[in-house]
Design a protein around this nucleic acid. Sequence first.
DNA 1: CGAAAAAGGTGCAACGCCTGCAAAGTCGCA
DNA 2: TGCGACTTTGCAGGCGTTGCACCTTTTTCG
Lengths: 204, 204
Amino acid sequence: MGLRERKKLRTRQAIADAALRLFDQRGYEETTISDIAAAAEVSPRTFFSYFPSKDDVVFAEMDERLADVRTGLSEQPSGETPLATFRRVTEALLRAISAEDGEYGAIQVALIRERPSLQAMALKRLSDAEDDFVAVLREIAPEVDDVTAVTVIGVAFGGLRAAIMYCRSQGYGPDRTREAAERALAIVEQVLESIPGITRPGPA
Amino acid sequence: MGLRERKKLRTRQAIADAALRLFDQRGYEETTISDIAAAAEVSPRTFFSYFPSKDDVVFAEMDERLADVRTGLSEQPSGETPLATFRRVTEALLRAISAEDGEYGAIQVALIRERPSLQAMALKRLSDAEDDFVAVLREIAPEVDDVTAVTVIGVAFGGLRAAIMYCRSQGYGPDRTREAAERALAIVEQVLESIPGITRPGPA
DNA sequence: CGAAAAAGGTGCAACGCCTGCAAAGTCGCA
DNA sequence: TGCGACTTTGCAGGCGTTGCACCTTTTTCG
């Protein structure tokens, strides 16, 4: 990796750090792009060559992890039952959106929970992730028809998302949240089991 | 109703009409507040005393119908089983978001489907509606614990939303969409039936 | 090594959304 | 008719965002 790319990475990180720190200290609306740029020691114009918008810096980490999950989606061992694939992939997704690791996870979660516009964007990201899951499901369970596949994934994401968001709104810690996610997953898996074509092992 | 209020209603409608017509003709981003104001024959500043933002004019009708559903939520006949209440209320919700009636329903749906930011806001509105449903469910089925209630409603909304959005993305007409919603509802109701405390009739 | 080319950073100007404020217009009521 | 309440308007300004042109730095290649 050349000097150029290393420098870009460092600059990107400096901007993200400055932004999240300022969001935490002063609040999201109260922090301007100029503030972030000044704190990161770049010009305001440069901010936009690293992040397409002010909101995106909040989601940057999550987006990277979601991208990893997406690439991981295509590499599934054969012979796994669709249900097992679902659980494996879902757990990867839960890790990706849980923001437990990552230096600013708590700040990001708080920001997203409190700002309606950020919450809307988070929901959109989840909705987009659903589409990828549907593609995987249709691949591993070809006999499931399209509407059923879409509905099943919607059910799964909807239940898990609601449970996790509720736990966050109640201020539950990671343990209790994980327990709620497990219970939600149990409800969801019960739906999956009732769908013909899900429990049998998929094609090679 | 005095002259003043009639006039306000007419102005509001004129702004909404002009906005949706222009969005349809030129596109959403290509239409400015000034354009809308000029077409509605008011000053640009006046736009913001009728709608809090440019986006909100797209959701104005839907918001009104959702508000009606919300008020209707509190008036449920006693003795109804929770499952019946769920189906009744869900059908009202489907009508509220289907945008089949309303002069600009098709335009609104197309706009929301094509603009990521509008899609995000639509998802947020659904997520907010979920919270009201959870409150109703907890009232009619008090023995259901909180995480289960939240999860169940999340499952229901998630499945229906996914099915309807899929049908729209595929260009299916109202009939086929309704059929898909029925199938999604069947999957969802099966989940509900398995939850203890849902199928028994609720309290007076 | 040195020059050309490529890529990144910066400043400037501009557009559009949105808000607060104060002035001007309009309506309802006595 | 005139007063008080409400509505509309214009103005000024902040902020996010983008396009453009210019400059600096890095890479590449002769």
